[in-house]
Design a protein around this nucleic acid. Sequence first.
DNA 1: TATTGTTATACTCTATAACTATA
DNA 2: TATAGTTATAGAGTATAACAATA
Lengths: 133, 133
Amino acid sequence: MQNLLGYALRRASAAMMESLLVRLAPFDLRSTDISSLLMIEANPGITQSALCRALGIQRANMAPLAARLEARSLIQRQKVDGRSHGLFLTDEGSELLGKAKAVIDHHDRELAARLPEGSRAMFLDALNALWRA
Amino acid sequence: MQNLLGYALRRASAAMMESLLVRLAPFDLRSTDISSLLMIEANPGITQSALCRALGIQRANMAPLAARLEARSLIQRQKVDGRSHGLFLTDEGSELLGKAKAVIDHHDRELAARLPEGSRAMFLDALNALWRA
DNA sequence: TATTGTTATACTCTATAACTATA
DNA sequence: TATAGTTATAGAGTATAACAATA
């Protein structure tokens, strides 16, 4: 079991998520909230469906997520046609995301610090190779 | 977000688990069943509590897990003192685990095959550095 | 007092199915 | 016909609290 890539991957991910969620608790944001906000910031006006595809989230689960973020005035929804909603950060959302990003970036640098110096870029590439296309 | 170690780690783990669970479906074994069986095989007589500590599982969740494996005659429980139960694989458990291990090992080699040649050992070390001790 | 195993329970996350309205 | 969004629901997986029996 010590040599199983899959087991190590699962334990590493769980440990990472546990420590990250502790840091994010003050913001009352779930991990999918954060990744949604980050994606909306990078792609203003992205539709819910496109956001779901990018993040690997079911549309059915995006509906309450987006409604929650809108109810907190963190995002705005604008109709782009009769059925699609474009998503945008509000100023409030932008500000909260800025604070959360500082925490996330710090957490991510702590993760990287646990890895051997020269291997960090390669580690990220390897992780991405396991789920991207 | 492309550069976040934590996000890539989470997506990679989720993608790996999804493909693994498809392969394990014929065995009717959950991921924690598998890791428990592997750990019992490597440490015959391990108690439920020790198993929980090794796998990062709550004792409360081990009770039904062990009961399920015992009901399927995959493990045996033997009292080591008045309160502790030592766990052992049955012949049937050993045989099923053997088949499951073949699938898991194959899956793990497929994962490794997606990584650049020279980086696989380092990748495993990096993952382990993120959750061990 | 601390530990083992257990029960009951709650919470989060995610998946599925069915529906509407629009394209 | 296919897509966007929604609702309701069900299933994992995991966490907490409390308890009895034992060390």
